[in-house]
Design a protein around this nucleic acid. Structure first.
Lengths: 346, 346
DNA sequence: GTGAAAGCGCTAACAG
DNA sequence: CTGTTAGCGCTTTCAC
């Protein structure tokens, strides 16, 4: 039980409350002797300053919120979010923040959660997962003046601070890569087109082809939703268009696509090459190993916290953005190694 | 910006601070007229009471912590935890708690997180994922006197309150079910045997067989770790022992097992029947659909919060436990439907 | 039904 | 270097 107060251990040490407060907060003006004595007493008693009292007077709760809107239903099915949360948690540990998690489950929550997260002394700042539906809440929160960074480019509120990867150019680089490898009929399974991520990666795909003077064929584009199942279906739909390579907007869709190809008796990458997106850690081995666009989700989480901390510390104006880099990780599914061998053979 | 205080809106309404406080807290002794006026002012100004000030005087932070020890590395790879967190988040929303997430990433964290979670005004209570490594921290926390419920049976500290399912009898029921279906050589792929969950389900398997007078064969038992990959490997290892049915301690291992059987040209359930454990929502369809022991993870999370809330409200003595029920969900992989048809044919 | 006043546990001037 | 003092914004007796 910790119902000790500063006063208690001050008394025990024969000093004043302020002195104890100073040693706790590492203020310089304390004699070494007193500091030692107080520190010892604190350790012995297991005293810990009362968080709320501290927060009240210092106007800092040392807690940041992470808000995941309800439309992030894939929360428990897509490894992306757990990984992101891990990164954020790590960032919080580093910066000594506590992480408050706000999972919005239904519309009612979304209404009544607002007072709990907007500036009211409980949160120093908030991380908000960008999302079409949630944009309204984001707007309200922004008005409350609480420091906030949006995870992913916001849909409408462009004047907010956010952190993201450049989905367009990342997707473009994947397509470029496939073109360089000599593929002629490159298809894509997109993400959900009601998300900025889904749209941007599709745009990147298109820019990649157009940049190389390749005509866009609607038949070579199917919409997915990032799930393995849709990847499977998408691949099946793509087959009549005879793609020789496919850019999948997520690894999990690519896994589904590989299954579809297997089921149809087609080989990867010999018959259809594949490039995915994400490169999250997985436990089930894929055959062949997937070439993919790696996005640094974990580091992204850490960076998001650092960014928010910066906003909290230095003030929020003007809106800033951080764009993190991606890279292509070459494995087997794109056929690069195969091509190399062929080339050498010539 | 919300830097209004009670005093401000009291002044605006021509009443005292106390009155405003009363309407906010729904105290009875306020005239209807005044209440209306104050409520309107609150709404207009968007005033929200300062959380820290409130917590300080009332000694209630309305925040509970969820601690996931570092050894829960599978956090971002096993759908169990995200689902659990969803349930907990839902429970928190219902009970008006904020959820503080403490993901311990390394040993250092584990040390220094203690002061942040033990009673110090920041948390009203904590939910702690049971875990062999974390048990020490659990003990320390328990001593701090903070209300706590352990998620899953704790390893050593048996005198703590916890919530769990009955893994032994759940596993036993699965095996019973397979015996009833007429299988003779029932194998198992266990969970990691350094976790209580893994051990308990193995015990249940053994009890199930022994209860029916079937001899235990070591060859029919292989240790897994809940991952799909280990399920695959485990099935391969099991094959020489010629099982006609296998109880997998997790669905994901069962998925791996199915893949292994397919790869070996064996049919499910005709050649080897399969029963899994979990029944978490999945996006990738499995063929054949898996018969499994359903554990109510989501409801489990909700219940855990209700339990903790109860402890917070009514006091923590003596330790209590809540055991939630499981049920077998019959699909194709166990061959029940098949057997039924056979039987009818006779 | 309402207001005045005390105080939750802490930090941060300000004196000394 | 150390102590005194004044709050931070709220809830809650206790009078009236």
């Amino acid at each position: 039980m910790n119902n000790l107060t500063l006063e208690d251990i001050a008394r025990n040490c024969g000093v004043s409350r302020s002195t104890v407060s100073r040693v706790i907060n590492n203020h310089p003006n304390v004699s070494e002797k007193v500091r030692k004595r107080v520190e010892k007493e604190i350790k012995n008693t297991g005293f810990r300053p009362h968080a709320a009292a501290r927060a009240l007077v210092s106007q800092r709760s040392w807690t940041i919120g992470l808000v995941l809107p309800r439309s992030v239903q894939s929360f428990f099915t897509d490894p992306y979010y757990p990984r992101l949360i891990q990164g954020i948690a790590q960032g919080c540990n580093q910066k000594k923040y506590t992480l408050g998690l706000y999972l919005l489950t239904d519309a009612e929550d979304e209404e009544e959660i607002f007072p709990r997260i907007s500036r009211s002394g409980s949160l120093d700042g908030v991380l908000f997962q960008s999302d079409q539906m949630g944009d309204q809440l984001i707007g309200k929160l922004a008005q409350s003046g609480i420091p906030m960074v949006i995870i992913g480019r916001p849909f409408q509120n462009e004047k907010l601070s956010y952190i993201d990867i450049d989905n367009v150019s990342a997707a473009k680089s994947a397509v470029d890569y496939l073109v360089d490898l000599g593929y002629k009929r490159i298809g894509t399974i997109t993400g959900p087109l009601n998300t900025s991520v889904g749209v941007d990666r599709k745009i990147g795909y298109i820019q990649g082809l157009e940049g190389r003077g390749i005509r866009i064929e609607e038949k070579l584009i199917v919409e997915g939703d990032f799930t393995e199942e849709k990847g499977y279906e998408g691949m099946i739909k793509l087959l009549p268009a005879k793609p020789d390579a496919v850019f999948s907007a997520s690894d999990r869709m690519a896994f589904g696509a590989i299954r579809a190809l297997h089921d149809k008796g087609l080989r990867v990458p010999e018959d259809v090459a594949l490039v995915g997106f994400d490169d999250l850690p997985v436990t089930n081995p894929v055959n062949p190993p997937l070439t993919t666009v790696r996005q640094p989700v974990y580091e992204f989480g850490i960076k998001a916290v650092e960014f928010l901390d910066d906003l909290i510390t230095t003030g929020t104006t003007p809106p800033r953005r951080i764009i993190m880099g991606t890279e292509i990780v070459t494995r087997e599914s794109c056929g690069a190694r195969l091509k190399k061998i062929e080339t050498q053979a010539k």
